[in-house]
Each structure stands twice: as structure tokens, then as C-alpha cells.
Write a protein that binds this DNA or RNA. Structure first.
Lengths: 210, 210
DNA sequence: CGCAGAGTTGATAGGCTTCAATCCTCGTGG
DNA sequence: CCACGAGGATTGAAGCCTATCAACTCTGCG
């Protein structure tokens, strides 16, 4: 049934997909590429509050107005549904509603983990944490841990609550210490993931690190 | 039907209500008092990731293991339901599921707004933001803006990603500037709420400030 | 009265930001 | 084919905000 109302769209890198305050008529699933969720203060300071990778969902059933800016940072393909038919579908199929609640709870957990990072971690720990997150989401299973950074230094800074200079310095430091190996500007290999994880400052038992 | 499975319980200030990693058998609604949601790093640094005030919900349907510590910071009264019957109720009444999704989305929005605070705001802006939040939730409507701080300086520091000394200094500074008036250690009056809001750094148009 | 916990205030230090200059890298066009 | 340009990234120096360490004050209560 979803088949009937879905459409695919592709946007170039840098496209604003949604602007805070807009009326949102389309709910989407990110099929390919990478986008960011961000908020801006009065004087222009920006904080990224979410990173969207393939399989992530964009938009909220039951909410007309977008609370955040969403921007493509690589070429992005979306699979979109019009709001109304989708909301009807949810109302009729409790199972989908439950799944949506599950996803929202996961997002909430991720947001809270990120609050700990923003509030209490050092620059070094922040960078290590980001690398671990990206390793888990982008590195193919089973192989050596390797991935391409989908973010510029500026975007990383925005996500981590740092400046781009500090991000650059800390990445340089991690490379000097042999914790990561760089291939070109964006390629990252992690020779020993446990060593990287040890630098995140996270409590290694307490449940959340699934 | 909820009537049949609900029980009331009261806990003294300081009680740990839930410890991260625990199996949670009871879902609750906070009836009276104030509690905090917090996470702890390896070496003991603590970040509060949520503040629970009357009418807030504790626990997640469908999630057995608690991801956070929840602690009473004043005497607290909970209205609790056993997990199973409550989950059955949700499955049978889509309306409740929708309400739960609504509440979770609200929490997510609050968490993301807090990420901006933690990542980008100055100490001054953080304190001002907290005061505004507490004004909105604790000050009786229609009167002058006045409330009692439910948090110690340390708890505020934990919530704001600061130290308690910095919190104390900034509160002193706000009082010196006449933005707030203190009555005793905990009483706060805000003579001009707009002036306080102007100090939060928040963008005053873009949607989220409902 | 005196103690304990919460809060305030002061001095110092450190980590990150800011400002600035330079270096890469890659795509473009002469 | 290679020089050139522009945006991204790195590196350096200086300064500021907040943390840290420490002493002291206030308040309520046994």
C-alpha cells in the first residue's frame, strides 16, 4: 500500500532539504547519501543535533511544522510519501505506529548520549566518540574497520560543539598516536577499535552501548 | 481500566528510583516532586539528560532495561503500573500509543534544544535558558513570574554542563544586573521575562519556542 | 553551640577559541 | 599538460572563558 504513494527524489550536496518553520508535506526515508539536522542561535552559532544516514527517517507524523533545518551534505536520495496518506496508514496499522515509537525512542537515546558528549567530554573524547559512531554505522562488517568521512571538518565541529580548528588538531593528534590511519583527507582506518573506544571516556559496562 | 493496576508510592529526596542497567518492572507517572535523568562517564563525570517534573512519564513500554539513572531530588510521588498490563493496554488502544509517540517526540525536541545549549551556549546563556524553562514549567500562570528552584547548584551544573562554582557566579551576576531577584537561597522572581529570554541566545522566531 | 551541607567568592591554570597565515587538493581552463 | 584558483585543511600565537583548588560564609538542625 505504501507502494502507491511513494516517490524518489535526488538532491545535490549542499541542498537545504527542510528549513525550520516550513510546512512539511512530505515524509521521507533517506535511501542514499548523508544529511544533517541542525539548529541555529540568534547570532548564527550552529549546533548539529542529528546526523542522517541511509535508512534514517525524516519528518514526523502528526507534526506539520519542521522544528529543524535539514541539509544534504552529500548527494542524497530520498524516498518520500505525502503526509496525509501516510498518517492514515499509521492510524490503520498499529504495527507501524509501534515501529515509529521504537525509532523515536532510539533517536531519543542517541540524543541523550550526545548530550553527555556535548556537556562533559573533552575535545579528544569527542573526536574519538564520533569516529566510533561512524565506524559502527559506515564500516562494512567483518573487515578491518575502515570508512570514508562523510563530514567536512566544519560539519564535525558543528556536531561536536567545537571549532573546526580544534577538530583538525585532535585528528592530527590521533593520527600521530597511531590510533587512526588516514588515507587522503577523508579515508579513515582504525587498526585497533578497542583502543579508540578506550579514548571515548564512555562507561564500558552500563547498558547503552549496543 | 488503568485504575485497576495503578499504585502510588512516595520516595524521600535523594532516593535512586532507577539505576542504569536495571530491569524495569514498573512504568510510572511523576505525580509530585522532582527527579533527574542522568548518565555517568567512566571516571565519574555526570551529565543530566532530563529533568522530570509533575506529569512527566518514567520508563518505556517495550524496553526492559533502563538506559539511565533516575534519582529523586525532592520528595517524589509516583503513580505506577506494572509493565505487562500496561503494554497490553497500549496494544489494544491505538489512541494511547499515539499519545505516547507524541510525548516521546516532545522529549526528543527538548533533548535537541538542550544539545544546542550544551554545545554552543555560554555559561550566562545556559543559566538564563534554565531560568526560562523553569519559569515556564513552575511559575503559576497569570501572576508575576516566580518559582522555587527545585535544584541545588550542583544539580544545575550537572544539567548545564558546567561546574557548580560557575553556576553560582552566573546567578550572582544575573542578580547584580537585576534580571532576577532572589528570595532566600531557592526563591526566584523574574521582573521582566523578556529581558531574561533575550539573554538565552535563542533565535526568537524559528518555531520551537512554543 | 557547633556541626554539616549548600552556597559564595577568590586566585590560578588550562583547554579551547579566535585570529591569522599557510598548505593541500582537485577541478577547470588557458 | 600544467598553471591557477577556490574551498577545505593544517598549523601557529595569543587570549578568554570556564575549571580547578581553596578558603570562607550562611543556614538549619541536632
Amino acid at each position: 500500500m505504501l507502494e502507491k504513494i511513494k516517490t524518489y527524489q535526488t538532491f545535490p550536496a549542499g541542498s537545504p532539504l527542510i528549513h525550520a518553520g516550513d510546512d512539511v508535506e512530505l515524509l521521507s526515508s533517506l535511501v542514499e547519501g548523508c544529511a544533517t539536522i541542525s539548529m541555529t542561535l540568534e547570532d548564527g552559532r550552529v549546533q548539529m543535533v542529528g546526523l542522517l544516514l541511509p535508512s534514517d527517517f525524516i519528518g514526523r507524523p502528526g507534526r506539520q511544522v519542521a522544528p529543524y533545518d535539514i541539509t544534504a551534505i552529500s548527494e542524497v536520495t530520498l524516498c518520500s510519501f505525502r503526509r496525509r496518506p501516510f498518517e492514515v496508514l499509521i492510524a490503520e496499522t498499529p504495527h507501524i505506529g509501534q515501529r515509529l515509537l521504537e525509532m523515536t525512542l532510539d533517536e531519543l537515546d542517541a540524543a541523550r548520549e550526545w548530550m553527555v558528549l556535548l556537556g562533559r567530554k573533552t575535545a579528544r573524547e569527542k573526536i574519538a566518540s564520533l569516529m566510533v559512531i561512524l565506524s559502527k554505522r559506515l564500516s562494512p562488517r567483518g573487515h578491518d574497520v575502515h570508512f570514508e568521512l562523510p563530514l567536512t571538518r566544519e560539519a564535525m565541529a558543528s556536531y561536536l560543539g567545537l571549532t573546526l580548528e580544534t577538530v583538525s588538531r585532535q585528528i592530527t593528534a590521533l593520527r600521530r598516536d597511531g590510533v587512526i590511519v588516514q588515507e587522503g583527507r577523508r579515508g579513515i582506518t582504525v587498526p585497533d577499535l578497542d583502543r579508540l573506544i578506550a579514548l571515548t571516556g564512555d562507561d564500558t559496562d552500563g547498558g547503552l552501548l549496543a
